[in-house]
């Protein structure tokens, strides 16, 4: 991911901050400047819940690493990677890894909480990227 693009998104990746339409109350993540429902441009920052539940998931067993080093973005994750779609608030879902779990412990409906982890290394010399990931609630 290009550095400016990562930088512009840190509010999302670090803090899960979305936006909420002042008119209809619809919440968006990532943030938007115009509401798709009523075309209102009056939206305010809205920090999302950091806890949610798993709607669906998969266990990725193919390696994401690139032995040829042709891709400079290395996705930093445990293998196998458990990836899930998580509902944080009614109608606001995110796709993210579930870490520190045994794949067999994950169920549709499992409760999870957000943690702060490294997700990208731009090669050996480039910047490091951090973001939300989730783990099962203890």
């Amino acid at each position: 991911m290009a550095i400016p693009r990562y930088w512009r998104n840190t509010q999302h990746y670090y803090n899960l901050i979305g936006s909420k339409c002042k008119k209809c109350g619809r919440v968006y993540f990532p943030q938007r400047s115009v509401c798709a429902d009523d075309d209102s441009a009056e939206l305010e920052e809205h920090p999302l819940s950091r806890e949610g539940k798993i709607l669906t998931f998969t266990v990725l067993r193919t390696s994401l690493s690139d032995p040829s080093k042709e891709n400079t973005d290395v996705i930093v994750s445990e293998m196998p990677l458990v990836l899930a779609i998580i509902e944080l608030e009614k109608g606001v879902n995110v796709t993210a890894p579930i870490i520190e779990c045994e794949p067999e412990d994950i169920k549709i409906g499992s409760k999870v909480e957000a943690v702060f982890r490294k997700i990208m290394e731009k090669g050996e010399k480039g910047i490091l990227g951090y973001s939300y990931k989730f783990r099962l609630m203890r």
Partner: peptide
């Protein structure tokens, strides 16, 4: 963990 470093540990401690 594979995705933990001094930055992530500091952020978790700070939070």
């Amino acid at each position: 963990g594979i995705d933990e470093d001094t930055i992530t540990i500091s952020v978790e401690a700070a939070r």
